[in-house]
Amino acid sequence: MKKLFIGCSVFALFISCISFRQKNVLYSGNPIFQGWYADPEGVVFDDKYWIYPTVSCPYTEGVYFDCFSSSDLVHWEKHSNILDTTEIKWAWQTMWAPAIVENNGKYYFFFSANDIQNDDQVGGIGVAVADRPQGPFKDLLGKPLIDKFYNGAQPIDQFVFKDDDGTFYMYYGGWRHCNMVKIKSDFTGFIPFDDGSIFKEVTPENYVEGPFMFKRKGKYYFMWSEGGWTGPDYRVAYAIADSPFGPFKRIGTILEQDPDIATGAGHHSVIIVKDKYYIIYHRRPLTETDQFSRATCIDEMSFDENGFINPIKMTFEGVKANPLK
């Protein structure tokens, strides 16, 4: 793996992570940590913020994961190589789009691997488990959790959502199709829906990939990425529904390129803490054209009086420090 780490670091431009001070208030700065990282999953565990991103480099080199932790959104600690293909024996090239949940004291780490193009290829969505948020993670199943195309959805870009009643749902899918499944609490398989089906398609208008869900005031906010991940028009849109099953009617775009800041803003997650909503996403600096030149950033997300998400203004300052303790 050492050679792969070196190859990926050559491809990465390590940007100085600057903390901004405005009127004696400390800000995170954007990007929030060094290196090319994309598809960030943000979450809070053990009184710390955690971000699990994709290592953004060529497919044959992006075969491991790092993660980052912070107590205040400003100072980040890197945890290197929390999972790689020496542990996931069935994965042989790029692993990306991590998602993570905690249940019964265990941390379950979901990922996409091998970028399969048909049902005859090996790969899809995998799951690993650890006793700590920073791993090391071990393959839970020894095989993919989902390794086939259902309803036209490529098995990638999974997100696991825990509803208020304790039910876990997974939303996933590429190739402009999104499925949802009800997943067992030990994450070894699926629970059929009331009609006996396993995979339900819930694809909203313009959906491409990168689904995400959160709940606010009894409403389900379903979000996704549109456009092409290699291009400047990558963006985030959303819908609001009364049920985790939808229907998810597209409302509009809330994050997109800014000619003064960056392009390719998408594949995000949301952290909710102390009545604050933070959107964590990747974007491509204006000086960069390479498809892998993506940096992880954070900005605040807000709502209007009717509960709709206000358009997000990307910044270089990032967000104010928000200590969890």
Rank of each mutant, 00 (worst) to 15 (best):
G135A: 09
D194I: 10
F193G: 01
D194V: 11
P232L: 03
P204W: 07
G152L: 08
I183W: 00
G173C: 06
Q158Y: 04
F245N: 02
P144D: 01
E256D: 08
K184S: 13
I146C: 02
F214E: 04
D157L: 05
Q257A: 14
Y221D: 00
G173Y: 07
G210I: 02
G228F: 01
F199C: 10
G173P: 08
F168Y: 15
P204F: 04
I191T: 15
V181L: 05
P204D: 00
V181I: 10
P133K: 06
G210W: 02
D157F: 10
K162N: 08
G264Y: 06
Y172H: 10
R176C: 03
I261S: 14
H268L: 12
K217S: 08
D165F: 12
H268I: 01
T188K: 15
S197H: 13
D139N: 08
M180W: 06
G142P: 05
W224C: 05
V270E: 03
W229A: 07
V273R: 14
G266E: 11
K138S: 14
Q154I: 06
N206V: 02
S185D: 12
M180Y: 09
A237F: 05
S243F: 12
P192N: 12
N151D: 01
E201C: 13
K184G: 07
K148Q: 11
K217Q: 09
Q134H: 15
P192M: 11
F149V: 00
F190Q: 11
F187Q: 10
I156P: 02
G227W: 01
F161T: 04
G246A: 06
G252F: 09
S225R: 06
R250N: 09
E226C: 14
N206G: 05
A265M: 14
I240W: 07
K249Q: 07
K143Q: 12
G264I: 01
I271V: 12
D242K: 12
D242R: 11
S197P: 12
T253Y: 11
I271E: 12
V270L: 12
I146E: 05
K182L: 05
G264R: 02
G218K: 01
D147S: 11
S269V: 04
A239I: 04
F222L: 07
I156C: 00
E256F: 02
I271P: 11
F161H: 15
W224E: 04
Y234F: 13
Y220L: 03
I272C: 11
F168E: 03
I251C: 09
G174M: 03
F159G: 04
I240P: 02
I271N: 10
Q134E: 15
A153N: 02
S269A: 04
F193R: 12
Y221A: 12
D164A: 10
G135I: 14
F193H: 05
S243K: 05
M180K: 15
V236M: 15
G266L: 10
E256S: 12
V236D: 14
F190N: 02
H177N: 10
G227K: 03
K162W: 08
